[in-house]
């Protein structure tokens, strides 16, 4: 019975994740550890597998909408993948307790970030690297009008992506929050472009450490299969339901839930 419950919980996590524009990892890892008492390292590895699944499926539709900046995504993936490699290597030396603490702090940070209002800005100046690699682009606004944008602070953005990669491998998250923060804040990309490009990159970041965890033996099908299948189904339904449900209200409730869960994770880390 617990395994069927796990499948159902994962459907819920995928549904909620799609509704709120989050990966399932932020929900799945606390559920697996706090409710099912599964070791956090198995939970992180299973979460990474589900991130690879949902983002690969979603990347398909992102490519069509011309919001994703494919060139920028590939450039920044150099940063996230190297970060993920470092994260995986570091993970062998980190105690489970510390992972709980780090996850708790990350959840708290996510809750704060969800309350933040993202200001729209369009940069008109390119960083020299962006100029050389032609990283700027244009995106469609209403009535199919294309709006051109430039890219700033490329080295800082790349460095932030490295950090996002480390966090992804350590905590089993897609670390979309960090990616969006780097692209919005440092590189001054339009909101829609940074969200779409971040979502597109998540799968590659997660697969870097997921592959290593799989070969090391941290990914066990008994956990990863129901979680991944549940999240695939849940996020598919969630994406369809998105237009019909008022996301703002759910967001507010979710911020409170995140706060409570973050405290629980920190307490478990301190025990």
């Amino acid at each position: 019975m617990p395994e069927i419950l796990l499948l159902l919980t994962s459907v819920g996590a995928g549904f909620l994740g799609a509704l709120l524009g989050l990966g399932g990892g932020i929900i799945v890892v606390p559920v697996l550890t706090l409710v099912y008492h599964i070791d956090i390292r198995y939970a992180i590895a299973a979460s990474l597998i589900s991130i690879v699944a949902t983002s690969s499926g979603a990347a398909a539709s992102y490519l069509k909408d011309s919001l994703t900046n494919l060139r920028l995504a590939v450039f920044l993936e150099v940063g996230t993948v190297s970060g993920a490699i470092v994260g995986f290597l570091v993970s062998s030396f980190i105690k489970a307790q510390f992972l709980f603490l780090l996850f708790g702090v990350f959840l708290f940070f996510s809750a704060v970030m969800m309350l933040r209002k993202r200001g729209e800005h369009i940069s008109t100046v390119n960083h020299p690297w962006a100029e050389k690699l032609k990283l700027d682009g244009e995106y469609p606004e209403q009535e199919h009008r294309m709006i051109p944008y430039k890219v700033q602070n490329v080295p800082l953005g790349l460095f932030a992506m490295f950090g996002a990669g480390v966090m992804s491998a350590l905590l089993g998250i897609g670390s979309g929050i960090f990616k969006v923060l780097a692209m919005d804040g440092a590189m001054k990309l339009p909101i829609k472009v940074s969200s779409a490009t971040s979502n597109f990159m998540i799968g590659v970041t997660a697969s870097a450490s997921a592959g290593a965890y799989l070969l090391r033996g941290d990914i066990r099908p008994e956990i990863a299969a129901p979680v991944a299948v549940g999240i695939i189904v849940g996020s598919f339904v969630g994406a369809k339901a998105m237009v019909k449900i008022p996301a703002v209200r759910i967001r507010q409730i979710f911020v409170v839930v995140l706060g409570v869960v973050s405290i629980q994770m920190i307490i478990k880390g301190l025990k």
Partner: peptide
Amino acid sequence: AVFIALVGSFLLGI
């Protein structure tokens, strides 16, 4: 380069 890094990171798991 990203592809090679990915393959490399997979192999780190061995």
